[in-house]
Simulated assay, not measured.
Amino acid sequence: MKQVLITGATSGIGEALALHYANQDYAVIACGRNQARLEELSQRQTHIQTLAFDITLAEQVAEAAAQVDALDIVILNAGDCEYIDDAGSFDGALFKRVITVNLLAMGDLLEHFIKKLRTGGQLVIVSSSVTYLPLPRAEAYGASKAGVDYLAKTLAFDLAPEQIDVTLVQPGFIKTPLTDKNDFSMPFLLTAEQAAERIFKGVQKRRKILDFPKRFTYLLRLLSWLPFSWWCWLLTRKKS
Results as ranks from 00 to 15, higher is better:
Trp233Pro: 02
Arg97Asp: 01
Leu94Ser: 08
Leu117Val: 14
Trp230Asp: 06
Gly147Asn: 07
Ile6Gln: 05
Ile84Asp: 05
Cys31Asn: 10
Val74Ser: 04
Thr154Ile: 06
Ala146Leu: 13
Trp231Lys: 04
Val148Cys: 10
Asp211Ala: 15
Leu76Tyr: 11
Val166Thr: 12
Leu17Glu: 02
Thr56Ile: 07
Ala36Ser: 14
Ala78Lys: 01
Arg137Glu: 09
Ile75Arg: 11
Gln49Pro: 01
Leu17His: 02
Ala65Ile: 06
Arg137Pro: 00
Phe228Ser: 15
Ala156Ile: 10
Arg33Phe: 06
His112Arg: 04
Ala196Phe: 01
Val28Lys: 04
Ser89Met: 06
Leu57Phe: 00
Pro171Met: 00
Lys115Asp: 10
Ile73Trp: 08
Phe228His: 15
Lys96Ile: 01
Arg33His: 07
Ile13Ser: 01
His47Gly: 09
Leu104Phe: 09
Ser144Cys: 04
Asp85Tyr: 03
Asp72Lys: 04
Leu222Thr: 09
Gly14Asn: 10
Ala30Asn: 09
Leu76Phe: 09
Gly32Asp: 00
Thr119Leu: 12
Tyr218Asp: 12
Ser127Asn: 01
Phe188Glu: 10
Lys239His: 02
His112Val: 05
Ala30Thr: 04
Tyr26Thr: 01
Ala138His: 13
Ala58Asn: 07
Leu123Tyr: 10
Lys2Thr: 02
Phe157Lys: 12
Val4Gln: 04
Thr236Arg: 15
Gln3Asn: 14
Arg118Val: 15
Thr119Gln: 13
Leu222Ala: 10
Leu155Tyr: 13
Ala192Asn: 03
Gly79Ser: 08
Tyr150Asp: 00
Asp180Asn: 09
Ala22Arg: 05
Leu178Pro: 06
Arg237Phe: 08
Ala87Thr: 07
Met1Arg: 00
Leu222Pro: 00
Ile75Lys: 09
Leu41Tyr: 13
Leu151Tyr: 07
Leu41Met: 12
His20Val: 00
Leu235Val: 10
Leu210Pro: 14
Ile13Arg: 02
Phe188Asp: 13
Cys232Met: 08
Lys153Tyr: 05
Leu19Arg: 13
Ile164Ser: 12
Lys153Asn: 13
Arg215Tyr: 11
Phe173Ala: 02
Val203Asn: 13
Gln43Lys: 14
Val124Met: 14
Arg221Ala: 15
Lys175Thr: 06
Lys153Cys: 10
Tyr83Lys: 01
Leu17Arg: 06
Ala160Thr: 14
Ser240Gly: 14
Ser224Asp: 07
Arg44Asp: 07
Ile75Gln: 06
Arg215Phe: 14
Ile6Asn: 11
Gly12Glu: 13
Lys208Thr: 00
Thr154Arg: 12
Ser185Asn: 12
Glu193Ile: 00
Thr100Val: 01
Glu39Gly: 08
Cys81Ala: 07
Asp85Pro: 00
Leu151Pro: 09
Leu41Ala: 11
His112Met: 08
Gly8Ile: 03
Asp149Arg: 15
Phe95Pro: 05
Arg215Ser: 15
Ser144Glu: 08
